[in-house]
Design a protein around this nucleic acid. Structure first.
Lengths: 127, 127
DNA sequence: ATAGCTGCAAATGCTTTGCAAGGCC
DNA sequence: GGCCTTGCAAAGCATTTGCAGCTAT
């Protein structure tokens, strides 16, 4: 509740419930549809539109990170620290790789004027 | 024409025209919609469905590489060699980074049984 | 009180599909 | 001729939007 307030989002019943589902377990990767199903299973009544709203609001406030790996769906990652991903193409599952496990060097500078927003390393595996 | 035949695709008028648009200039990144517009501008009559078919057929045969950076659209890259990308979030433009310009070390092994399909490094910049 | 949220259903926009007609081998 | 392709329009799907009714503060 304070966490929501801190970033300037009203702690509404729906947002509290979704935040609970998202942040209570450890780090996780969810799709909007998956979170929506979880909410239903947990007898939390929220509309799908609200799930999308919450996910985007949380992302805009830095509570989540959005990841697009294919056109089918968007993933939202509760781990907002420095890290990368294994992507299991067959199952659609994502797995974190600690940021310090990967060394990237000789990274070219961003073109003049542009600043780097973030660097994503995605290791696609067929598992 | 031989290039299409070599990978087992019939060199139809439409595929030849699209291949020409794709591979004549240097390396490029296109969306289905963009290629469709180009075709129209070049007075090549193809339907949007055919553009999607060709793009996917070419990708399946290894002539193109598909890249998903956001949910909005898919990009197809004519550069199928080892390289990475700058992604200009504001404009949606992609720029190649030579593969040897980036050193990745300490990459964790793929989980048991899984094989690495490819490693994508995407540097998002706000330019 | 009131600005911000939510829910529902309709709308969007990219991508895919069904199927008849056409073109390559 | 036979089978792969194409074209068109309709269907699919994930995501967004419009707007009336709520609800934090």
């Amino acid at each position: 509740m304070d966490r929501l307030r801190d970033v300037g989002l009203r702690p509404t019943r729906q947002r509290m419930a979704l935040a609970h589902l998202l942040f209570s377990p450890g780090d996780r990767h969810v799709t909007a549809e998956a979170l929506f199903s979880e909410a239903k299973a947990a007898r939390v009544h929220v509309s799908l539109a609200t799930v999308y709203n919450a996910l985007h609001d949380f992302t805009a406030k830095g509570l989540l990170r959005e990841i697009s790996l294919d056109t089918e769906r968007s993933y939202f990652d509760t781990n907002i620290g420095d890290h990368h991903h294994f992507y299991f193409e067959r199952t659609g599952r994502l797995e974190d790789i600690p940021g310090d496990a990967v060394q990237i060097s000789n990274l070219p500078d961003a073109p003049h004027g542009a600043t780097v927003t973030r660097v994503d390393v995605i290791i696609r595996v067929d598992g």
